Amino acid sequence: MEGRRFASGLYVGTVMHHRVKPVRHRLSYRVFSLLADLDELPRLDRDLRLFGHNRFGLTAFHDRDFGPLDGAGIGLKQWAEAQLAAAGIGAGGPVRLLCFPRVLGFVFNPLCVWFCHRQDETLAAVIHEVTNTFGQRHAYLIPAARGADGLVRQRCDKRFYVSPFMDMETAYHFRIRPPSGEAGEPLAVAIRQTDAAGPVLHASLALRRVELSDGAILRAWARHPLMTAKVVAGIHWEALHLWRKGLAVRPRPPAPAHPVTVVDGPTRF
């Protein structure tokens, strides 16, 4: 990792959604994401002119965009460590959050991925934090174990309403290539959503690391100046297409009583 200035980094790439039933629909668009080492945020705020922590910037990271909606009164890393401790998972190392940053003050994150490490920097758990367009947020905390191929595979049942055109009785299957901080490294999150009869949706985030600097931020913004609008518009455009294709709107149940669903045991295969 010679020459690496920050553990945090920018990651540029593509989001893809492919619904396979009961109708077929696909979308894909270019994005850039921030991998924020939570311990490093004050330094990023100080050293980068085009990035702000809890303040306005060309790009920014605001603590209130993540974690508990009620504002738990503790820092994000402390909140994550409290969730891990409650689940009986030892960590104590870096917590790095993959998310869309605020761009000119605006952001919407359908999915954020928290990589929670032990003190030796091995991966202990992943928190998949989902936000829907109804102002609700929920997280799935799953222990993590890398397979022989370096990938993390996880599974959980759906507990939180996201799309009005998707049944609740489904499951998520995650396949993740976690970040290590190497220059130019790939980072990928693939999600296969299934019902009792098989796959319903395939989604992926395929990214490559760019070292974090003001120049990198400016170039990413110049390529994607309206990224937040593109993300939100893409969600609603997909919903419109699904509605026109005849899919019925599913009723929205109450959000889970607890903001974090803990899944027992990592998946290895």
Rank of each mutant, 00 (worst) to 15 (best):
G67L: 11
V15T: 04
L226T: 05
V107D: 13
R252W: 14
C116V: 14
F174R: 00
I142S: 02
R118P: 00
D65Y: 00
P256D: 01
V12Y: 02
L44V: 11
V189D: 03
P143A: 07
L38E: 05
P266M: 10
R252M: 13
P225K: 00
W221K: 06
R46F: 07
R175E: 11
H17P: 09
R118F: 08
A86G: 10
A233V: 12
R192G: 02
R19C: 08
D63E: 15
R192V: 05
Q83C: 12
L205H: 05
G13P: 10
L187S: 07
P68A: 13
E121G: 04
R43Q: 14
P251C: 05
P101G: 12
S180V: 15
D264K: 11
F269V: 14
A188P: 06
G265R: 01
G234E: 07
N132A: 09
G184V: 09
P94Q: 13
G135Q: 09
A7V: 04
F61K: 07
G181P: 02
G92S: 07
P101D: 08
V232D: 07
F51S: 08
V200C: 05
P179A: 06
E238R: 15
V107C: 14
R102W: 02
M227H: 02
R159F: 06
F108A: 09
E182Q: 15
L123Q: 08
T170I: 03
N109W: 04
L218R: 14
M1F: 03
R43D: 07
E2C: 01
P101L: 13
A36L: 04
W79Q: 14
A80W: 04
K77V: 10
A229P: 00
H17Y: 11
P164F: 12
L104E: 12
R146I: 06
A72E: 10
A148S: 01
L98A: 11
A248K: 04
A183F: 06
D45E: 14
T228V: 06
W237C: 12
P225R: 00
L104I: 13
A125D: 03
V95D: 01
A206L: 14
A248S: 10
P68K: 08
Q154H: 04
R5P: 01
V262A: 13
Q193K: 02
A196M: 00
C156R: 02
L50N: 04
G147H: 03
I89Q: 02
D149L: 05
V200G: 03
A206T: 07
G93A: 11
R118H: 11
H128L: 06
S163G: 02
T14Q: 10
F160P: 01
D167S: 09
F106N: 13
L35A: 11
T14K: 07
Y11W: 00
I142G: 00
P186V: 05
G234T: 12
I142Y: 00
A222V: 02
S180R: 12
L84P: 01
A203C: 07
V260R: 14
E238S: 13
V113I: 15
F108C: 08
V152W: 01
D65A: 14
A222H: 11
G215S: 13
G234L: 10
R177Y: 10
G246R: 00
L242C: 03
G90K: 08
I142V: 06
P110A: 09
R268P: 01
T131K: 09
F56M: 06
